[in-house]
């Protein structure tokens, strides 16, 4: 049975995040011929809507409204609700991002629908959609089905396979006007303070350089940041480093904190408490640098170096500079 799938484009700093194309690729695979569409909600963001078609979109719904400048739950919910109805969607994919994880439950409740959060896979099984998602931050996984007529799913970045773009495809653009009067918006943004270091987003980073108690101070993160800069990586941290106030909690990776699955995870001065391992052990390749040869982090590491991070990391940064210049 074919199904209509709507993907909410996940915009950040004016760009479309990769997870949107991952979601579209998956949508195309499971739609069984049904229409795949994209919703672009913004205040006139310059988005290349043609690119959505290359990954499977048949239609692009564009809602432009000044009230969509920043993410405000009431505004985004009203806009996406209108697109869902217009598209007649059976399935709505959102990124498991700051926006998607906040918006999906709100709309699921509004539609009385079922929802699955943070999925890492979706497949067809005898005509039914089966979603795979982590529980206990990735210590285990479940396969789930949803029995409502409308299904919401939030997608973890970096896990669904992005298909090869088909540049011969094109999509119809539909401009939708949605009325969002100020008195219908019960919360409002007073200010946005950009804090992310280095500009690489932790949840979508292909490479993460992460520090633990072993970095010893806020200054101790400097060599890690330099390594991250060379790699185009994001910087993360263990709970120990956050609790010791070496860095902001926004960087924390673990069961309390962010769960990440980059291609390469470099853990420096992190012992590997179970709650940290839950947040990163599903990374594709793990490198551990730690003084203590007994540190549990070495049990999940593909490559380990027993030694002082303050000696090893600067050498690694220099070596990588050379290797990447080749």
């Amino acid at each position: 049975m074919s199904r209509k799938i709507l993907v909410l484009a996940d915009l950040r700093n004016g760009g479309v995040r990769n997870v949107t194309f991952e979601a579209l690729s998956a949508a195309k695979n499971i739609s069984e011929g049904g229409e795949v569409s994209v919703a672009v909600l913004s205040n006139n963001a310059a988005v290349n809507t043609g690119e959505f078609a290359h990954y499977g979109a048949d239609k692009v719904y564009v809602v432009n409204n000044a009230a969509l400048e920043n993410y405000v739950p009431d505004a985004y919910a009203a806009a996406l609700e209108a697109v869902i109805k217009e598209a007649g969607a059976n399935v709505v994919f959102l990124a498991h991002s700051a926006i998607g994880r906040d918006l999906a439950p709100k709309l699921a409740a509004r539609f009385g629908a079922g929802a699955v959060s943070d999925i890492i896979n979706v497949e067809l099984d005898g005509g039914n959609l089966v979603f795979t998602r982590p529980i206990y931050a990735g210590k285990a996984f479940t396969k789930n089905t949803v029995n409502s007529d409308l299904i919401f799913a939030t997608i973890r970045p970096n896990n669904l396979t992005k298909s090869e773009p088909d540049t011969s495809r094109s999509a119809e653009t539909v401009n939708l006007s949605v009325d969002l009067p100020a008195d219908s918006l019960r919360t409002f943004i007073k200010e946005v303070v950009k804090k992310s270091t280095g500009g690489v987003d932790l949840s979508e980073a292909k490479i993460i350089v992460s520090g633990g108690r072993g970095v010893k101070s806020a200054d101790g993160f400097k060599p890690l940041q330099e390594l991250a800069d060379v790699l185009g990586a994001a910087v993360g941290a263990s709970r120990g480093a956050c609790d010791a106030e070496y860095c902001d909690y926004a960087l924390q990776i673990g069961q309390t904190g962010k769960v990440v699955t980059p291609d390469l995870y470099i853990a420096a001065g992190i012992s590997g408490a179970i709650q940290h391992l839950a947040g990163m052990s599903n990374s594709k390749v793990i490198v551990a640098i730690n003084k203590d040869p007994e540190a549990p982090i070495f049990k999940v590491a593909d490559y380990g170096i027993v030694g002082d991070l303050f000696e090893i990391v600067p050498i690694l940064t220099e070596e990588l500079k050379k290797a990447l210049a080749e």
């Binding site: 089966v130 529980i135 285990a140 409502s148 599903n282 551990a288 049990k299 999940v300 170096i305 027993v306």
Partner: peptide, 19 residues
């Protein structure tokens, strides 16, 4: 509205290499 079909553990990783 949703149900769990299956619960499983991630594949266990072979011990890595200490350089």
């Amino acid at each position: 509205k949703s149900s769990v079909l299956e619960t499983f553990l991630p594949p266990s990783k072979a011990a890595g290499r200490i350089l």
